[in-house]
């Protein structure tokens, strides 16, 4: 299902007004100082449309940095439990690039592979993604190495491609995308023969994710490679926290004598505490083993077990890393490693 239309940039204000009137919350890239982050917006003036990458990813639309799962109260020897209401707010994620849009398939695969996850699934069910194709890229982008592309439609309900200073080419991809058109049908005019390819950014593939997946099981035991790649790694969680597909979390109780709240908080396999056992033993006791886990999880375990790659090539980890650990570069080296 894909129909094409034209949307004038000057009509975005009207579209935003219609969506807001229909009860939608709008999340979009917003410039804060030198940084871009996804935030709630009311008008297109607040939105950065010409950008390469936001600092934090769009995952917070379905998987926020922290969220309550349940609240409890101590009542003598009893505990009263109150599960947290899932967040049902209808939300439009506007202006996320194709890498971010694609990331929700990975998150969904993780959060729904065994037991249902009401918090995540409710947010995803109420999320409409209006993607924004990329007309520029930088040295950190590598979507084409992991199955994506600057004009990729996967994950978007509607994809906008800026054809020129005035117009977007609109691809309506899903029923949710059709609902956006239905909210303001007069704004979406016929597209004629316009195509997006000529304006899209060029991102040359760096490595083959399939080849990498084949190589990794044998590379697991090659300790020297992991130590060498991660010598400069400081063991912070910046890469995981800006990553659109990193989904590890920690369950924490914030409590006092009367009761408390059980929270789900982002966690990172780069932290030494992540695998620390109650006995004091840590199966991943040095950073090289944590780095190996990060690479293996994204490019070997997840494709093998869930059928999805744990990476969409957005490059945020590498842009953000305080010591310039470049994931694409390391993945390429591993994919090209001689057995």
């Amino acid at each position: 299902m894909s129909e094409t239309r034209i949307l004038q940039k000057k009509s975005l204000g009207e579209l935003f007004a219609k969506l807001t009137a229909a009860g939608q919350r709008l999340l979009a890239p917003v410039k804060e100082g030198e940084l871009l982050n996804f935030a709630e917006v009311k008008s297109p003036e607040q939105v950065a449309l010409d950008y390469i990458q936001t600092r934090s990813s769009a995952k917070l639309a379905t998987f926020p940095p922290y969220e309550p799962l349940l609240r409890y109260k101590f009542n003598g020897k009893d505990v009263e439990q109150q599960p947290a209401e899932p967040d049902k707010r209808p939300t439009v994620l506007f202006g996320a690039h194709p890498c971010d849009a694609a990331s929700f398939a990975t998150l969904k695969a993780v959060f729904t592979w065994d037991s249902p996850d009401a918090q995540f699934e409710t947010r995803l069910a109420n999320l409409t993604i209006i993607g924004l194709a990329c007309t520029k890229a930088d040295a950190y982008c590598f979507c084409t190495s992991v199955g994506g592309s600057p004009g990729d439609t996967r994950g978007s309900d509607m994809l906008l491609t800026p054809l020129d200073a005035e117009r977007f080419l609109v691809e309506v991809l899903t029923p949710k995308g059709q609902a956006v058109v239905a909210a303001a049908p007069q704004l979406f005019t016929p597209a004629g023969n316009e195509t997006k390819d000529k304006v899209l950014a060029k991102v040359a593939p760096r490595f083959s994710a399939d080849k990498l997946k084949e190589k990794l099981p044998a590379a697991f035991g090659n300790n020297a490679v992991w130590v060498e790649q991660s010598l400069r790694c400081l063991g912070c969680g910046a890469c995981a926290f800006v990553c659109p597909t990193c989904s590890c979390f920690d369950i924490q109780d914030e409590r006092n004598r009367e009761g408390g709240t059980r929270l789900r908080c982002w966690d990172s396999c780069g932290f030494s505490l992540f695998t620390l056992h109650a006995s004091g033993h840590n199966p991943r006791h040095v950073q090289s083993e944590r780095w190996r886990q990060r690479v293996m999880h994204k490019f070997s375990y997840q494709p093998e077990r869930l059928g999805v790659l744990g990476c969409v090539g957005c490059g945020r980890c590498s842009r953000t890393c305080p010591v310039d650990m470049n994931l694409a570069e390391h993945a390429q080296a591993l994919a090209e490693m001689k057995a």
């Binding site: 934090s56 800006v242 990172s268 932290f271």
Partner: peptide, 11 residues
């Protein structure tokens, strides 16, 4: 804006 990644601590 802090995301508790502890990059400050690590660096």
């Amino acid at each position: 804006r802090c995301i508790k990644c502890y990059a400050c601590r690590a660096a």
